[in-house]
Design a protein around this nucleic acid. Structure first.
Lengths: 154, 154
DNA sequence: CACGATTTAATCGTGCACAATATGTATTTT
DNA sequence: AAAATACATATTGTGCACGATTAAATCGTG
């Protein structure tokens, strides 16, 4: 690190460039994942964010909109219409929690539950496509999670 | 790896879960980057994808829409309206190439060029926020780039 | 109990991302 | 040169993503 005349810390151009590259690498890898998943998810009529919602539901059975949002880091402006589409597709149902009428409980329908194995089977290909072994995947995942934590606690 | 009765290779649930986590980690880190950049980019009235376009223009001065698309891995359906907004903001200009009227050449206006230092200055903060040193950043970037290559050459 | 503060979803507006399609231009074939 | 083909960009439609706003339900405290 060098210093400017006024004593401010200055980041060299090369590092700024690198930081941008890292940022773009993440952005770009996310698109690549999306494209890899798309043809597979198309077969069952799901988008990738819809698939994420189904994943958390397959694990827990039923959840409030808020909880889904916390798990996926998405707000109601994104989830409300998405969940409406999943409902229309007959995969989930929505109902106000009688204990607390503010909350909407999302639960899997029979079709939604049944889709789990179907998707699980065709998803196997993607894991292979990453070209990573288990250790590599875990390592990369952990670093990205740490990166996210760093970025959100600015 | 275990085998099913019919001799098919089967991926254990745990690894499938991990692969999904990696995929989600990438998706989620991309959102985190976006959110970290947003308040800074808001000050100059740019979105993150618009910033990416400006980055490649700051490096080259002027480029065709197609070239920008190749560099950022975006198609005309995304770029056309985005570039129109940048034009409206007075940062770029669009003109058909007289040599080949199919191409539209995007070039920086004076304002667009001038924004470079302005943005560069306020961007420094993000690099810090990643909490990565130079080596870590480079390593992470390289792995993500490889991951992308693997995913796109399925 | 009452009333203001908080919580939870939904809605609206803007902008990205991408598939499919259209349109005009350039190149190649015949 | 005319027709066929390929190419570069624009347009349209669908679905995220998110900020801001709204509306209803609940909670906390006097």
């Amino acid at each position: 690190m060098t210093n400017t005349a006024d004593g401010q810390t200055m980041i060299p151009d090369e590092e700024k460039r690198l930081e941008r590259q890292l940022c773009f690498a993440v952005y770009s890898a996310a698109h690549a994942f999306n494209r890899a998943y798309k043809p597979i998810l198309d077969r069952v009529g799901l988008t990738y964010p819809q698939y994420l919602v189904m994943l958390v539901l397959w694990e827990k059975g039923c959840l409030s909109v808020k909880t889904i949002g916390e798990k996926l880091d998405l707000d109601s402006g994104t989830l409300s219409p998405l969940l409406k589409r999943l409902e229309q597709a007959g995969l989930i149902s929505r109902a106000r929690d009688p204990k607390d009428e503010r909350q909407v409980i999302i639960s899997l329908t029979e079709n939604g539950t049944g889709m789990k194995c179907q998707v699980s089977a065709i998803m196997d290909a993607i894991g292979q496509a990453t070209g990573c072994d288990t250790t590599e995947m875990a390592n990369l995942r952990d670093r990205l999670q740490q990166l996210k934590v760093n970025l959100t606690t600015v």
